[in-house]
Design a binder for these strands. Structure first.
Lengths: 247, 247
DNA sequence: CATGGGATGTGGGACGTCCAATGTCCGGCC
DNA sequence: GGCCGGACATTGGACGTCCCACATCCCATG
């Protein structure tokens, strides 16, 4: 009879109550990404709720990318990160790699459909779109290919920068999330059989097709790119007996 | 000096440790979606860790769709739900509705690019694909349009069932997630100015274009569909002064 | 005037305890 | 003998409190 005293009938869990409360605080106060949120103690007082419940709720909101918690500093409104999506997809993909089903393949198919459509959108908007950044990244990729491997960062950057002129930041984030999932499962796949030169050539083909507004070539280039990805996926043999590293 | 006795240097937080541990348990034991997980107490013992940390970690995993917690019953390996993604997108979209930026518009653009590409994939694979289900849903939609409104469920079902023959479950889930976000923000938007008959007609056009493998018509039909969505979005005026309902 | 070491405040971690929801099983009642 | 209901065990939910780790800022010290 200590706590839980006068509380009227509750339907949902405390955690969810707090989550909704925090969301409402953000919306009502018209906070923007990066703005500070009330501290844990303030929330405890305002909502008349225990610390653990507050913490659980905020952890969830953090996992989902709605708040950003910085130890010893405070809590802030989160910027969209899609980190939760990456975790979920990466985990389920890894899980399905063990069985006959292959979720990663489905993910890659979606990436291909998306990128294919986006490339055509770029061509639609040519020549207003500024492809200078993409050109620069392609050059860097080719330079890297000459001296060794193409770094994953450069690869990711290309797919990010190419579609940036479309003015849709969500595109970059979603594609980035998919890319992260794929990258996170690198260790579970075999090595690629493409040479660095191949990688650079394929990406150059995509860029060139956009520049010259050659739609058929764009379709082919994108398909070639993902054929490479798919080939790598198909050849996976390494079992997952060993303990996956915690990150 | 009670608890926290002999613990060696830790790098990451407890919560993350537990999250990784649980993920590893699932992978190592080759559990499948729906399989039971150790109880909270078992995890406490196995990992030598406090209950709150376990609970926080599991809440996060639940939010991300990796585990499924059922009160008074147990914890189970989760099926992919993308619920976390929906929450994140819905929240940030609602937040951006207040400002000048409009994230929801970006989301809809992605949906359009995706669906457009998927429709063309369907045509690629014709006539192997079985569109009977889609035909049925379209018929139902038209029936609903005759007697009143087209129910959101029917709308969602159409976009789900249409692409099902592609054999990529992730497509349905991702599209469903996007659709959920849009649906969840209905209240923040004004009413549509399309009649139920319009809605049915537009969807019928998409279906017909696929059946007849008419690519230009498919492109136009998809565009028409999303023009309607965009129009509704553009006319939003209702402010968000009132407290959004907690769901 | 520059700098390093607290003082302070914030989140992180862990217990222990009690509450509540769910499932099971056994015994009384029909 | 069958069925319904309540006791019991199990499991998650919530709380309060203690202590630790981390970041910041200010003041004392050189």
């Amino acid at each position: 009879m200590f706590h839980d005293a006068h509380r009227p009938r509750r339907r949902l869990t405390r955690s969810i109550e707090v989550q909704e409360a925090v969301k409402n605080i953000i919306l009502q106060r018209r906070l923007a990404a990066g703005d500070p949120l009330p501290t844990e103690s303030e929330l405890m007082d305002e909502l008349g709720i225990g610390r653990n419940s507050v913490r659980e709720a905020l952890k969830v909101l953090q996992a989902v990318g709605i708040v950003d918690i910085r130890h010893g500093f405070g809590m802030f409104v989160g910027r969209m990160s899609l980190a939760g999506l990456v975790d979920e997809l990466a985990f389920h993909s890894r899980m399905s790699l063990q069985g006959e089903r292959n979720q990663l393949g489905h993910l890659i198919e979606i990436r291909e459909v998306l990128e294919s459509g986006l490339v055509h959108r770029l061509i639609d908007q040519r020549p207003e779109v500024n492809l200078a950044e993409a050109a620069q990244v392609i050059a860097q990729m080719e330079a890297e290919a000459l001296v060794g491997e193409v770094s994953p960062e450069t690869d990711r950057l290309f797919h990010d920068v190419l579609y940036r002129p479309l003015g849709n930041p969500l595109v970059g984030q979603l594609l980035g999330a998919f890319w992260d999932v794929y990258q996170q499962l690198q260790d579970d796949l075999g090595a690629s059989d493409e040479t660095p030169a191949d990688v650079a050539r394929i990406h150059r083909a995509i860029y060139a097709a956009v520049v010259s507004a050659d739609r058929p070539a764009a379709t082919i280039a994108i398909r070639a790119h993902f054929d490479g990805v798919r080939a790598r996926l198909a050849r996976r043999v390494r079992s997952l007996e060993d303990i996956p590293r915690p990150t």
